[in-house]
């Protein structure tokens, strides 16, 4: 190409990737869903039409009406209000835990990938052993012992969801380490940290971003499962998992009370997955266009 394109700075490149994502159907739908949910989580305290904990003996399991658009639950609380507020805790916990998981898992993965050899072999076996354990049992046990407050759940989720990231980051690093620019940096005598920071991380960053988006959706599901099983958010705080659990007993005649949180939770997870998909494609295309040839 003869046109000299100045190097795109970080916000410039991010914007370009976002634009590319929005131009794809999956990205447009995914981004709309994710952004909608985030906005709702922030604004719902002001937007919610009713008090989320106001119970009423007369309004039990009422179908949707003009005052209660999505009906009421088994103790007469407004389903719309509770659905609007029900994602706040889940989003807060997972939005903190996800980056933590990606950063620590990513760092270790890149480090093992760079060191290679025996250290890498042993580390990989340990990672595999952890992956073989059912996460949910550990999370349940911890939540049962220490309570399900964010300070307990965030490190717990970040720890368990960082482990698969190690594997992904390690594999991506292996491809980069084999390339000559890493040998060149080694031959010049840069420190390991400098090589990780300058040579490796910029080249595995895209993979980690996509991996992070995937981990986020899994974490949300785990969080909701915890509530569903009764070890998560405690009543009366509204939470989708908890709402599904409470309403599931009356599912046969009061479908609205269970349907609303299900739609909310699944739309968020579908949204995240679509976004991750579009992100992968946008970054992949970005790479392909930059490749020589």
């Amino acid at each position: 190409m003869s046109a000299v394109v100045a190097r795109r700075s970080f916000p410039g490149r991010a914007l370009e990737v976002l634009r590319d994502m929005a131009a794809r159907p999956s990205g447009a739908i995914g981004l709309a869903l994710v952004l909608g949910h985030l906005l709702m989580a922030v604004a719902s305290p002001w937007l919610a039409p009713h008090d989320y904990k106001a119970i009423s003996a007369t309004l039990m399991l009422k179908p949707p009406s003009a005052t209660h658009w999505l009906g009421t639950d088994h103790i007469g609380r407004d389903v719309l209000t509770r659905t609007m507020l029900g994602g706040r805790e889940a989003l807060l916990v997972t939005a903190v835990a996800t980056p933590v998981a990606v950063v620590w898992g990513g760092f270790l993965g890149v480090l093992f990938g760079l060191i290679g050899g025996r250290v890498d072999d042993v580390a990989l076996r340990v990672v595999d052993a952890f992956l073989a354990l059912p996460k949910i049992l550990f999370v349940l046990a911890t939540a049962a012992i220490f309570g399900a407050s964010p300070p307990v759940l965030i490190p717990m989720l970040a720890f368990f969801y960082g482990i698969p990231v190690i594997r992904v980051a390690r594999a991506a690093t292996h491809d980069v380490v084999a390339r000559d620019f890493v040998s060149a940096a080694r031959a010049r005598g840069h420190s390991t940290l400098a090589i990780i920071r300058r040579e490796l991380v910029p080249n595995v960053r895209d993979v980690l971003l996509v991996e992070g988006a995937m981990r986020w959706s899994w974490m949300l599901l785990t969080f909701s499962s915890l509530s569903f099983l009764g070890f998560g958010v405690s009543p009366p705080t509204p939470d989708w998992g908890l709402m599904i659990k409470d309403a599931s007993g009356f599912m046969s005649f009061a479908y609205w009370a269970v349907l609303a949180p299900i739609v909310a939770l699944s739309s968020l997870i579908i949204g995240i997955n679509l976004t991750a998909d579009a992100l992968a494609k946008a970054l992949g295309v970005d790479r392909a266009q930059k490749a020589p040839g």
Binding site: R179, D180, F181, S183, A184, E199, P202, N203
Partner: peptide, 10 residues
Amino acid sequence: FQNPDESLNP
């Protein structure tokens, strides 16, 4: 190195 595509960090 032989191949500058490999030896320069993209």
